[in-house]
């Protein structure tokens, strides 16, 4: 097949109507950018959730006369418990000093150590879902000698909620982006097909296969989507560059975002051409 010649024809079509080509690429870029931003957001919320989940443990604070060895044994026998660590009153104070850093001298005014001893319960990963974690915390809090428990379960519930909302947004936006990119590209390619009616007529008369007739239009749609995706990626990088100084923990998986943009940009561009061709050429 005459790939080279037909690609040159496609570039002639593009240069002949540069403004629609760039308009269409620009709209595709805006759509892909919108989705990319949400994708980066989702990835980061997900990452935060995972980090929080990794650190999840139940702190069980002991009454003053509790027998920590007996309690450790009992807790170890509960399902989902990986490890139990005893933190004495002194240990707790030491940790607090480390946490406070240079402000730790405010502790010097204390007459006696107000912190309770506690058992730090590490949990198996599959017990970190909000419901299971809640049940386990409940069981521990009912043991004799436990004054109070704390697990950060509420934070996890909140993160799970945020993730499902954001994921819902992602799907919705992806849908809008799909429709918009395909629509704008197909409109632009349709205009080219109409402008090339004479060439198409001659191609058909002289016996060009339909693949040959369609190829330049697929090339055109592909490049619209590709250019859109590259612009979207570059803008994402620039935005991230500015935001990252304010929000240092934000992470940006460059390669994933690049691959994602190029993949969807080109697929949607080709899809737009496909729709244009099936609407105009029988």
């Amino acid at each position: 097949m005459a790939f080279k010649f037909l690609s040159q024809e496609a570039f002639k079509n593009i240069t002949r109507n540069k403004s629609s080509f760039f308009l269409s690429s620009g709209v595709s870029a805006a759509c892909l950018l919108l989705f990319t931003i949400f994708l980066v957001l989702t990835i980061n919320v997900y990452r935060i959730k995972n980090t929080v989940e990794d650190r999840i443990e139940i702190s069980a604070f002991l009454t003053d006369n509790a027998n920590q060895i007996e309690l450790t044994d009992k807790i170890m026998q509960l399902d989902g418990v990986k490890q139990v660590q005893y933190i004495s009153k002194d240990d707790a104070l030491k940790e607090l000093r480390i946490d406070l850093g240079e402000n730790s001298n405010i502790l010097d005014i204390l007459q006696r150590n107000p912190l309770p001893a506690s058992l730090r319960v590490k949990i198996n990963p599959d017990y970190k879902l909000p419901t299971k974690l809640g049940e386990l915390e409940q069981k521990i809090s009912l043991l004799k000698g436990i004054r109070e428990t704390w697990s950060g379960k509420d934070i996890i519930v909140r993160l799970h909620n945020i993730i499902s909302v954001v994921a819902g947004f992602d799907i919705g936006i992806l849908f809008i982006v799909f429709i918009s990119v395909i629509f704008i590209v197909s409109r632009t390619v349709e205009a080219t097909i109409l402008a090339r009616a004479r060439e198409i007529e001659i191609m058909k008369l002289v016996g060009a296969t339909s693949a040959m007739v369609k190829f330049p239009f697929y090339v055109e749609g592909f490049f619209q989507g590709l250019l859109g995706s590259i612009v979207s990626f570059l803008i994402t990088v620039i935005i991230f560059y500015f935001i990252s100084s304010f929000v240092p923990f934000l992470q940006m998986p460059y390669l994933l975002i690049l691959v994602f943009n190029i993949f969807w940009g080109s697929i949607l561009g080709i899809g737009g051409s496909y729709i244009a061709l099936s609407r105009i050429l029988k």
Binding site: F5, L6, V206, A208, M212, V213
Partner: peptide, 9 residues
């Protein structure tokens, strides 16, 4: 016409 009918360039 020669290109689109697959003639060797």
């Amino acid at each position: 016409v020669l290109h689109v009918t697959g003639t060797r360039p």
